[in-house]
Design a protein around this nucleic acid. Structure first.
Lengths: 196, 196
DNA sequence: CGTCTATTTGAATGTACTCAAAAGCGGTGG
DNA sequence: CCACCGCTTTTGAGTACATTCAAATAGACG
């Protein structure tokens, strides 16, 4: 699998020499998940960081009644997996699962330790990754606190224009925190107002 | 101000020699905020990490209509401030403000860089701090998605038994994501069911 | 074609909000 | 000490937002 997408993603934060880049590339393992396959289940320890080359995934938690609450959707050029579990080697609190067939480039935890020693600037890269995840969560909390489902849905569609065609409404509803029935009526209402 | 509370807080994650501890202590500056005073306003860059020795604070964002959405309450033995702003030197997205008169021990950003060089294990300490904040946020998102205001309120009171006496209902409502009027009726209902 | 799941629709209900007004409470000045 | 001010909390009526339950329809897949 071509690592150029990943290398250009990394180059947005840190600059690598050719030698460093090829060392990094040598650590990568490719993996393909069928649609519906699990990358990580709640309770397992996350041992890899996984960069999505093609495809998309969802990461969710399940409540007592068995319903899914989606924390995030992940697409090409994003990193998947439970960062906290990865860094602390504790049980993951969320499940990550492929929505479409998904191609990944993975770095194992132990290889990453080697990488940190040989190319310390990767420490910086992964720290920034974490920080961005943290900020994104903060925005998510703010939007859950301050807006109605209708506003959240509209913003969600603007923010992720690919959402409608790649994610099921059931999943979108589980992300927005509403029932799938209510999302359906919301969509109907919005179609009548603005028929695009 | 006595730094022993802070040192024992740190010793839960990393072990310091006496010399390291006294070096760290020499970097600390004390600060006292009156009730209602701001520690950090949205838009400012966060230049200190602040450990709360006594008192409590709230951290919130304000929406277009001017209403506060409280992301977290902070009390003794917690670290306040916008970690993301601090680490990236970008404008804070949230405001932090004292609820009661609050005593802080502060480390500036530049002193922290010196500390990292001289006592590298502090890197680990602040990384863990960040990770815990990240996880706490995740729990918060999950609870906003999966529970009603009533359940959230009950759990909130269990999780923060000091909340009722230290925080106003207005603020608690802004944390739970409901209006203060609705929280008031919720409380009335709960009193009738279980009059404690 | 049948089966399984996702989506839509509608009715009844519950949850939470808005608006408006009253009651409570701490502080301040006369 | 009391009256008044500003702020928080309580209460109620009416309304909007969102859910549950039930059933119909549409799509995907073997």
């Amino acid at each position: 699998m071509d690592p150029s997408l990943l290398l250009s993603n990394i180059s947005r934060q840190i600059t690598l020499t050719e030698e460093e880049a090829s060392y990094f590339t040598s650590l990568l393992k490719t993996r393909t998940l069928d649609a519906g396959a699990y990358l990580l289940r709640e309770g397992e320890v996350c041992r890899h960081q996984s960069f999505i080359v093609r495809g998309c995934m969802k990461t969710y938690q399940t409540d007592e009644e068995g319903s899914e609450h989606i924390l995030d959707f992940l697409i090409e050029e994003w990193w998947a997996d439970d960062l906290y579990s990865f860094l602390t080697a504790t049980a993951a609190t969320q499940t990550t699962r492929a929505i479409e067939e998904t191609n990944l480039l993975q770095v194992s935890h132990s290889d990453l330790q080697l990488l940190y020693v040989r190319v310390p600037k990767f420490e910086r890269f992964f720290r920034i990754l974490f920080q961005n995840a943290y900020i994104a969560q903060k925005r998510h909390i703010h939007s859950l606190l301050s807006t109605t489902a209708e506003e959240r849905y509209i913003r969600f569609c603007q923010l992720k224009p690919y959402a409608e065609e790649r994610f099921s409404q059931k999943d979108i509803a589980a992300y927005l925190g509403v029932t799938r029935q209510f999302l359906s009526t919301l969509r109907k209402k919005l179609r009548q107002v603005n028929p695009d």
